[in-house]
């Protein structure tokens, strides 16, 4: 995908005329968690620990693998967190699509899936961290109604800038999709 490339236009725009590839989502289980590991190795310079994968699986329907004509090409991994006062919020740990398959609407599909689920389960807050200079990502999320709610300085240890924003989306009962 790629922020600002017209994500909202739907999921079939890139595959040229006539060739309509099937996209679908599948749940994350211990039997296929290796797919997510392969994706993360390709996408992120970080090696995630076991807890990350346990959390992702434990979030049940919130973490999803995205398939493009039966090939796993992207994923959203979420963690459910309890806030003070007992309300549940969703923390998006990672969202990513393999480079050759960006711009096909899979990121949108994954994100919308999480929004829909939040509405269904009456969850009103989704948040994530993003490095302050990652303009593409910030633009992408803003398009979906995320807002910068906080800046954490010295969040990262080994990269510059070490600061990050917290991006949050509050879901009202009406505004499910952008």
């Amino acid at each position: 995908m790629g922020a600002g490339e017209g994500e909202a236009a739907g999921s079939k725009e890139k595959s040229g005329g006539g060739v309509v590839a099937r996209t679908s989502l599948d749940g994350l289980r211990d039997k296929n968690v290796m797919q997510l590991k392969k994706l993360n190795t390709a996408l992120f310079p970080v090696r995630y620990n076991d807890k990350y994968y346990q959390d992702a699986i434990a979030s049940k329907d919130f973490s999803k693998l995205a398939y493009y004509s039966d090939i796993c090409v992207g994923a959203i991994a979420c963690r459910l967190e309890k806030k003070e006062g007992g309300a549940v919020c969703v923390y998006i740990m990672t969202l990513g699509v393999l480079a050759p398959y960006r711009g096909l609407g899979l990121g949108t599909k994954l994100l919308n899936h999480v929004f829909d689920l939040c509405v269904k389960q009456n969850i009103s807050e989704i948040y994530l961290h993003v490095q302050t200079n990652n303009d593409d990502a910030i633009a992408f999320y803003k398009k979906f109604g995320f807002e910068i709610t906080e800046t954490i300085y010295q969040y990262y240890k080994n990269i510059t800038p070490p600061d990050c924003y917290v991006l949050t989306k509050f879901i009202g009962q009406s505004a499910t999709k952008k």
């Binding site: 990350y52 990513g96 990121g107 593409d136 990262y156």
Partner: peptide, 13 residues
Amino acid sequence: LNGTVHIVDDLSN
């Protein structure tokens, strides 16, 4: 990241 879009961070901290 080769222009990896967004990518959100995670945990660890």
